[in-house]
Design a protein around this nucleic acid. Structure first.
Length: 473
RNA sequence: GGUCCCGUCGUCCAGGGGCCUAGGACGCCGGCCUUUCAAGCCGGAAACGCCAGUUCGAAUCUGGUCGGGACUGCCA
């Protein structure tokens, strides 16, 4: 039997990190088993669904490298993979279930239902306890699924083990709304049946809904899929990862300069591990050893710091050419204009040094603006720490003198000249170099100085040292 | 309130009766390297929620307890 798994995002928002992780695990499982990964759009909530969100979601999945074998945009043998195209099908199923007696119409008003819920709660019972099939049958309103009050509903969850619910604790849930649209429970279950989904790996928040889906599936006369309820993801504050806390949307990570490989790698480590030791690994390695049975049961906290570290690892691992190419838009963004190829070659002189110092792509831009723009203002702390000191004027004058004599402007000559100067002045290397650094980069933190001077060029370097010297009075 | 799920360093993940004086990673602290910052290298602090039981032996099995979470909608 071919493994068929799916991710069924609902386009009521951007792709959430938790959904992305669920998609990732499904994808990994499909690839590991040589099965099929399906992307379906659960847009039964027509009020909140938009095509913009759908595009965002699909774009993020593609960015992560999760390709799908069937689904929206790529098609497949099961017709449309968008639930809004299948409302007729759901209506037929719902009405069919009414005919067989598995479901019933219910026209009781909301406040009446609410009263029943409160009564049940007061008695320490499940809220849906009294919301069962009424004596008097009606032919309009919502359609509710009638929970057979027989034995417990038990199943073996791939990550949780055996789980069981008593039928009296499962409410007669609505499968079809009075406005003629299906609910999530109906549409999702019908689709899983129609599309021959074999394994349903989804967030643990859906565990309590699983008995409903199992009963529905059985009422449809279909085989129940294997379930795997994935642990939830939490934000660093210990609360459920939410949009309000920022960065819950995968697209944000793309914008902030994270690499898809790093995000893929990091996400796969939330609730799973390759071997308990290896942190950095390829997609292929993950595919080779991934199995839903190995997914951990406990919820995980999404740690942006570890992601950032991992992103840095990936940045350092790429070729410098590739890095330069990736980082160019970020550098141009920081500089504020497009750079000519001539200017760009200045960056390339020190790109390797920048690469080592970059965790997030945009950081590279900040490190090298000094190469292209004049120093508008010096970093306050840097100035106070290194420039507002005795002897700095002498150092800058000496440095300018030494550098002005150079006929060859490259790293080796610059270093030689400056070291000779330092020896003459009989001061510490750090003490001598820091004022020069602040003069030409505006900050006490920068890429290595000799290379920076070389890349900046003779004219600008001398000029900046002079300007800084002038500011000291 | 009810149902279900979960409890190993601050965080993520190993360990599933003896190999555990509990391992790896991020972060943190200290050191080395060093022209700053990174990177790299070396070292350190840091956890089996608690109580019983089973057993020669429990982080691992069982029960209870406490804590956390999810769900409880004509959202998904």
């Amino acid at each position: 039997m071919t493994v068929r798994v799916r991710i069924a995002p609902s386009p009521t928002g951007t792709l959430h990190v938790g959904t992305a992780r669920a998609a990732l695990f499904n994808w990994l499982y499909a690839r590991h088993c040589g099965g099929e990964f399906i992307v379906r759009i659960d847009d039964t909530d027509q009020k909140r669904s938009t095509s913009e969100y759908e595009e965002n979601i699909l774009g993020s999945l593609r960015w992560l490298g999760l390709d799908w074998d069937e689904g929206v945009e790529v098609g497949g043998p099961h017709g449309s993979y968008r639930q809004s195209d299948r409302f007729q099908r759901y209506r037929e199923v719902a009405e069919g279930l009414v005919e067989t007696g598995a479901a019933y119409y219910d026209d009781r008003p909301t406040d009446e239902l609410e009263a029943l819920r409160q009564q049940a709660q007061k008695e320490g019972k499940h809220p849906g306890h009294y919301i069962r099939r009424p004596e008097q049958s009606v032919t309009e309103g919502v359609i509710r699924f009638s929970i057979p009050q027989e034995g417990p509903i038990a199943f073996d969850d791939l990550v949780r083990g055996s789980v069981s619910f008593e039928p009296q604790d499962v409410d007669d849930f609505v499968i079809f709304r009075s406005n003629g649209t299906p609910t999530y429970h109906l549409a999702s279950t019908v689709d899983d049946v129609d599309y021959r989904i074999t394994h349903v790996a989804r967030g643990e928040d859906l565990l309590p809904s699983t008995p409903k889906h199992i009963l529905l599936t059985r009422a449809l006369g279909a085989e129940v899929p294997v379930y795997a309820h994935l642990p939830l993801l939490f934000g660093i504050d210990g609360k459920k990862l939410s949009k309000r806390l920022g960065a819950a949307s995968l697209a944000t990570y793309e914008d902030e300069g994270y690499l898809p490989e790093a995000v893929f790698n990091y996400l796969s480590l939330l609730g799973w591990s390759l071997d308990g030791e290896t942190e950095i690994f390829s997609r292929e390695q993950a595919v080779a050893s991934f199995d839903l049975i190995d997914v951990s049961k406990n919820p995980a906290t999404f740690d942006p710091e570890k992601l950032a570290w991992m992103n840095g690892e990936y940045i350092r691992a790429m070729s410098t050419d590739h890095f330069s190419q990736m980082v160019r838009p970020h550098v141009e963004g920081a500089v504020g204009r497009e750079l000519t190829d001539d200017e760009w070659s200045r960056f390339e002189e020190i790109s390797e040094l920048v690469q080592e110092r970059t965790k997030l792509l945009p950081e590279a831009g900040e490190q090298v603006v000094f190469l292209f723009n004049d120093i508008e203002s010096y970093d306050e702390k840097s100035w106070a720490k290194v420039m507002a000191k005795d002897g700095v004027t002498d150092i800058l004058e000496a440095a300018r003198g030494a550098l002005a004599e150079l006929t060859v402007w490259d790293k080796v000559s610059i270093e030689k000249a400056l070291r000779a100067m330092i020896e003459e002045l009989e001061i510490g290397v750090g003490k001598a170099l820091q004022p020069i650094r602040v003069s030409i980069t505006g900050s006490s933190v920068s890429p290595p100085l000799f290379e920076s001077l070389a890349a900046l060029g003779r004219e600008s370097s001398l000029e900046r040292i002079e300007i800084a010297r002038g500011m000291l009075g």
